[in-house]
Structure formats: structure tokens, C-alpha cells
């Protein structure tokens, strides 16, 4: 129906995951089923029900503007695969300023 293997390939690229041709086929079928279900949901009568963005009946949950202790630099970097001094070290993707 809606979702082609090409759509899945595009989404996989955006999500930075590599999919085999078999997976592309399998997932496009699965996503199709999900969308078909959403189509069914769309048919439900929703007059008088405002659109919702959250399942909890809560609004306006704030914290006060108070400082809390941060992690130490060592703790922050403890699980980093690669580091240099106090920094995380990553492969250069692009340099947006050059």
C-alpha cells in the first residue's frame, strides 16, 4: 500500500541504521500494516475530543530555576568510547563553519 522499500531505505538513512534488502522488504510490509491500522483509527468518531499530545492528565509541570550539582568531568566521560582531555572525541562529520 503506502510504504515502499525506498521509503524505508530513506528512513533508515535518516536514522543512521543499515538494513539488508531482506529487512527493507520485511519492514516496509510491517510499516504498511501499522499505517493501515492508523487508517482504521482515523475512522473513529472524534468530534468533541480535543487533539492530545500526552496520555497523562497533567499540565504545567515545572522545576524552579535552582542549580543542582553536575557530574564531575571524569564521571561524565566515564563511558565515552573515546576522549581527549576533558572532551568527548568523535570522528569529524563535517565542519559547518569552513
Amino acid at each position: 500500500m503506502g510504504i515502499s522499500a525506498k521509503d524505508v531505505e530513506y528512513l533508515a538513512h535518516l536514522a543512521r541504521i543499515q538494513l539488508s534488502p531482506e529487512e527493507l522488504q520485511r519492514f516496509s510490509g510491517q510499516l504498511d500494516e501499522i499505517l493501515a491500522y492508523v487508517e482504521k483509527l482515523k475512522k473513529a468518531k472524534t468530534e468533541g475530543a480535543p487533539p492530545t499530545s500526552h496520555v497523562l492528565p497533567l499540565t504545567n509541570v515545572f522545576r524552579e530555576d535552582k542549580l543542582q550539582p553536575s557530574l564531575s568531568n571524569e564521571a561524565a566521560l566515564a563511558n565515552a568510547p573515546s576522549r581527549e582531555g576533558p572532551y568527548f572525541k568523535v570522528p569529524q562529520i563535517i565542519d559547518p563553519t569552513s
Binding site: K66, Q68, P69, S70, L71, S72, N73, A76, G85, Y87
Partner: peptide
């Protein structure tokens, strides 16, 4: 609750939330 202060030493104002 991490500080927003400008110019602190790298990765010294971070916590599990902002990481």
C-alpha cells in the same frame, strides 16, 4: 539543574539529563 555559566571548563556543567 546544571549551570548555564559561560566559559566554564569543558564538560563540567553536564548531568545525565543534558548528556
Amino acid at each position: 539543574g546544571c549551570s548555564t555559566l559561560f566559559g566554564a571548563s569543558p564538560n563540567s556543567q553536564v548531568c545525565p539529563v543534558c548528556l
